[in-house]
Nucleic acid binder design. Structure first.
Lengths: 136, 136
DNA sequence: TTGTACTGTAATAATAAAAGTTACAGTATG
DNA sequence: CATACTGTAACTTTTATTATTACAGTACAA
């Protein structure tokens, strides 16, 4: 997975959760996270594809949650930002003449798959609403 | 965590497990993984610090497992290569004037900590010996 | 006692990935 | 039609990873 994207997405969603049904502009989000608004918009674009947020263009536009915060789970955020395998890539081009090299990536994939299932189960226990409560 | 290091370490340990009490040179390991021997030696150096392998210098030297493969668990390998947080860094410099920005990193840390505990529990179920059986 | 086959590690270069920036077209509101 | 937004492409900068070179140190074995 990509280093800071999970954190940025959670931060965005937390702010949107606190904004309720207001349309929050990306400049505002960028100000709290302290990163470039374009990065925020890229992340919003990704969250939108995953059905986690809605955006509205034009004046007085912005973004808001696409569903109530108690129906939105950290496992969904993980799924939205995940690109790489949890534990990193496998071996780039293992030696096919070696019995271990030949099969290592398949076995690593299984291991990673199992680990990820466990992780998703753990993240699935925390809703955005619950996460937001911690700020009170 | 660092992208391919977990895979490289598991690959190394698997090869060493198959070599039993032979001292295996890093050139041989590098050949199966198909990476530079210096990288292998760096990884070995790290695994050695963690007490997972032993190395012997000089002619007919090399490395071997520091303990039986059925006493060595994937959670130890994870611990050995882990540098970054599982889900990436927190937010670099969140805005301290925003109630969310001010506390987001603490709350993310907790979330990451819980997720990691779960992951370690999952990886702790797989011993190196068990992993090696898959190659037979 | 010397050549050889290793390890260990520093320094550096090459490559790739992530983050930040600029620029600008498009859209809704008032 | 001016304004305040989004959306996205293109580019630059920064940082992380991977690879390479170089060489000192160690143990074995003839």
């Amino acid at each position: 997975m990509n280093s800071g994207r999970f954190a940025i997405s959670v931060h965005i969603l937390t702010l949107l959760a606190f904004s309720g049904d207001e349309w929050t502009p990306s400049e505002y989000l960028a100000g709290s996270i302290n990163i470039n608004p374009v990065l925020v918009r890229k992340e919003l674009s990704n969250l939108r594809e995953r059905g986690l947020v809605l955006s509205k263009e034009g004046k007085s536009g912005g973004s808001r949650l696409a569903k109530p915060a108690d129906k939105l789970f950290m496992s969904e955020v993980y799924g939205a930002v995940k690109q790489k395998d949890l534990l990193g890539k496998g071996i780039n081009s293992p030696n096919p003449d070696c019995p271990v090299g030949r099969k290592i990536n398949d076995h690593l994939d299984n291991l990673y798959g199992d680990a990820e299932k466990t992780l998703l189960a753990s993240l699935g226990k925390m809703s955005l609403a619950e996460f937001c409560k911690k700020f009170e």
